[in-house]
């Protein structure tokens, strides 16, 4: 499996970015310090030309904006949902699978920015809805916010394998989502339903409870409740695997999406690789994002071939992310 690396921001209003200025562009060989073009990946825009036209400088990058919290809903002790008023432009740009924003309290420094998947968008009202699970320092600092919140975005690389989701029409699809991972699965289901696909969702409450069932129902998804990870080793239960295998084979499932932790993705990837007819594999991007701009290095992962990938900006086939970690 040869890797094809796409930059999620390529061709957007934020491209070229800091990486072009420093010879670290993810896609353009000319902006990696090479002398000639070698465009294995292509998104319809010559980044080198954009960079030259912009007088060899990056475009203006995303800024934090202070936004109002319109509604707050406590789902459990660990999880709450915020509806935030943003600009309509921002809401529109976040109305895609994989969209996320960085959130923080305006009282805290920039390094408190924490990434959150955008679960729902109202383009007309200019609002976004996110689900926050209290986990560590940065999310604890958001726990008591009721009125205002700093929002930085839009970001789009919250899902790996987006092109498979965007390209699928009139097929059957299986979504598995656990805990707060349900939030990233919802826009995926919405996009797939709009494209005429039939969606089955396996939900596991994880540690945060089920908070998406109504929305999945509204979309007309078929909902199944099953444990997705169990035991100390966090393994997918055999019964769930057998159920998935049956669904995939009987329904001729073309795409599987995994929303949850890396453990879940690894389990799903291993299971799918064992199948003769492999559906497309897509998953939520569970790397540790810090800056979202490919600079800080916290989201770097090393692939089997030894290369390092900035996962906050890079789209690649999710099997490549996990093939080095699975005992095949």
């Amino acid at each position: 499996m040869l890797k094809i690396l796409d930059c999620i921001d390529a061709g957007s209003e934020y491209c070229p970015c800091h990486l072009a200025e420093t010879g670290e562009c993810i896609m353009c060989s000319q902006l990696q310090g090479k002398t000639f073009c070698d465009c294995r990946s292509w998104k319809g825009v010559c980044i080198y030309q954009e960079f030259t036209n912009n007088r060899y400088q990056k475009r203006e990058q995303r800024q934090s904006k202070l936004c109002h919290i319109l509604h707050r809903e406590e789902v459990s002790e660990e999880l709450f949902i915020l509806r935030i008023k943003t600009h309509k432009d921002m809401a529109r740009e976040l109305n895609v699978p994989g969209a996320y924003v960085f959130l923080r309290s305006s009282e805290n420094a920039d390094y408190y920015d924490t990434p959150m998947s955008v679960m729902k968008v109202d383009e007309h009202e200019g609002t976004i809805t996110t689900a926050l699970q209290i986990r560590g320092i940065k999310t604890k600092a958001l726990k008591n916010l009721n009125e205002q919140i700093e929002v930085r975005g839009p970001y789009w690389n919250g899902i790996m394998g987006l092109k498979y989701i965007k390209g699928l029409r009139g097929s059957k699809v299986l979504l598995v989502a656990r805990g707060v991972g349900q939030a990233s699965a919802l826009p995926v289901a919405k996009k797939l339903v709009i494209s005429g696909n039939k969606v089955t969702v396996i939900l596991d409450k994880g540690s945060s409870g089920i908070f998406t069932e109504t929305y999945f129902n509204e979309l007309g998804c078929n909902i199944v409740h099953k444990p997705l990870l169990e035991g100390k080793g966090f393994k997918i239960p055999q019964e769930t695997l057998e159920y998935m295998k049956m669904r995939i084979q009987e329904d001729e499932i073309k795409l599987v999406f995994s929303g949850g932790s890396e453990r879940l993705h690894e389990g799903i990837a291993e299971f799918l690789l064992s199948l003769q007819e492999k559906p497309y594999f897509t998953c939520s991007n569970d790397a540790k994002f810090c800056c979202g701009e490919g600079i800080c290095g916290s989201c770097h992962i090393r692939l089997k071939d030894g290369s390092r990938i900035k996962t906050c900006k890079t789209q690649l086939n999710p099997f490549l992310l996990y093939e080095g970690r699975i005992n095949l």
Partner: peptide, 27 residues
């Protein structure tokens, strides 16, 4: 081509019949 080469060694993409933006560049 492709576009980056036409820019670096010429006067930029002149939108020729090869249509790199649409179909992707030569590798």
């Amino acid at each position: 081509g492709p576009m980056g080469n036409c820019l670096k060694y010429g006067n930029g993409c002149s939108m020729c019949i090869l249509r790199c933006p649409t179909y992707g560049p030569r590798v």
